[in-house]
Design a binder for these strands. Structure first.
Lengths: 220, 220
DNA sequence: TCGGAGATCCCCCGCGCGGGGGACGCGGAT
DNA sequence: ATCCGCGTCCCCCGCGCGGGGGATCTCCGA
């Protein structure tokens, strides 16, 4: 089975270079060439290629915008490979969010571009190693537990427990019921928590708790 | 300059296979072979290889634990490549968090393993395409804006504005000052917000706001 | 043996807050 | 021309909350 490919780059030279590479591969067929993002979106809708190789920098509509439009249309099953000249692009995050199947540098050896197209066509994804490195770093911090502020160590176990319930927007009476203690006791604990953390009232405590990871606001 | 590599896998067969592959490369030198994670950590500390290739499943200490121990020690400059048999591993998140430079399947062609080692050695990272696909999906959701609950559309622009200040734990008086209106007006807005969102009091409003992305609790 | 920290419970006081009303002006849609 | 949504301001009332005291009891370590 042969794979159909659409090329989008505003440099004719680069397009013909890539096309020449494709011609060496019997199972790859370049079914279209365009020079800007809007044309890329239109041609993808018309030709429905297996893979579209888009440059990031293009007139009228850049590769990112084109990617978003292409992948937003459920009628398209085209996979998108993005090419860029510099690896300093912060665009990678937007590209991945849009659902691109690849983010590659133009310095990539031709045979690896070929291989990337096959990878994308079968539904997998490929990211340039130099970008992957930063992606991992970013991914790690986005999953990293928030740093526990030092003043939290001042709290006793009971007070932390109260703070957690406080963060869940429970009233004093609810906390008292939950902990099987009197509500006067809860008031005492709450007062101590506020004093130790330097918070004005329970409203600030809720905000503080969410910002410091006492409660998992999002994600698991 | 030649790159030094440590191999860690509990299957002697696989180790000798990889070693044979390395021997075909003049610039790669396998300086050690171990069969479990604890030995891997020890040998990395002793030999300081450029790259350590670790299997995920190993006796005593698995590849992930070994990765974490190796990369937690700042004295080590060894890059870690993780190998696994199945791509169903959820371990990839833990691996990337620990700072691994690669996450590859054993089905990888030998020449690509060689190339991965060079990639890792120069500080870049490489993830198997089939894993990358899932990683992108996960990354996208972790950066995706939280879904805006439909009831939020009931709020007027002014009420949303008040909700944002509410979420920042501001008192009615503070909000009034910020918006240059009377505090009675703020009370009205707050009441409407609580009613429309079905919230009991401002404390719940703060929690609601944080859980629905009205305020950016973490990240930029 | 004594002291202090922690957890529990109690009282009083002031106030911010939320609910329930109502009122007025303005702008856009009908 | 009319009406309604919206933003603005006002009053009263009840209550939960937070600060200020103080009081036990238990446990643990000096």
């Amino acid at each position: 089975m042969t794979l159909t490919v659409l090329l989008a780059d505003d440099h004719a030279m680069l397009r013909s270079g890539m096309r020449a590479i494709f011609d060496t591969q019997p199972d790859l067929r370049c079914v279209g060439e365009v020079a800007d993002g809007r044309a890329a979106v239109a041609e993808v809708a018309r030709l429905r290629p297996d893979v579209a190789v888009l440059d990031i920098r293009m007139p009228k509509l850049d590769g990112l915008g084109a990617t978003e439009m292409i992948l937003a249309d459920p009628a398209n099953r085209t996979k998108v490979l993005l090419l860029t000249t510099y690896d300093t692009d912060e665009y990678v995050y937007r590209a991945l969010n849009a659902g691109a199947s690849g983010f590659l540098l133009k310095s990539l050896p031709p045979e690896e571009l070929i291989s990337a197209i096959r990878v994308a066509a079968r539904g997998d994804a490929l990211i340039d190693p130099s970008v992957t490195q930063r992606l991992i770093a970013r991914f790690a911090v986005s999953l990293a537990p928030p740093p526990t502020p030092p003043e939290l160590a001042l709290l006793t176990a009971r007070e932390r427990e109260v703070l957690e319930l406080l963060a869940a927007a429970h009233s004093n009476a609810e906390i008292a019921a939950r902990l099987h203690v009197g509500d006067e006791t809860v008031k005492t604990h709450v007062s101590r928590v506020l004093a130790k953390l330097g918070l004005r009232d329970r409203v600030h405590a809720v905000a503080y708790a969410h910002m410091n990871g006492i409660v998992r606001t999002r994600g698991e």
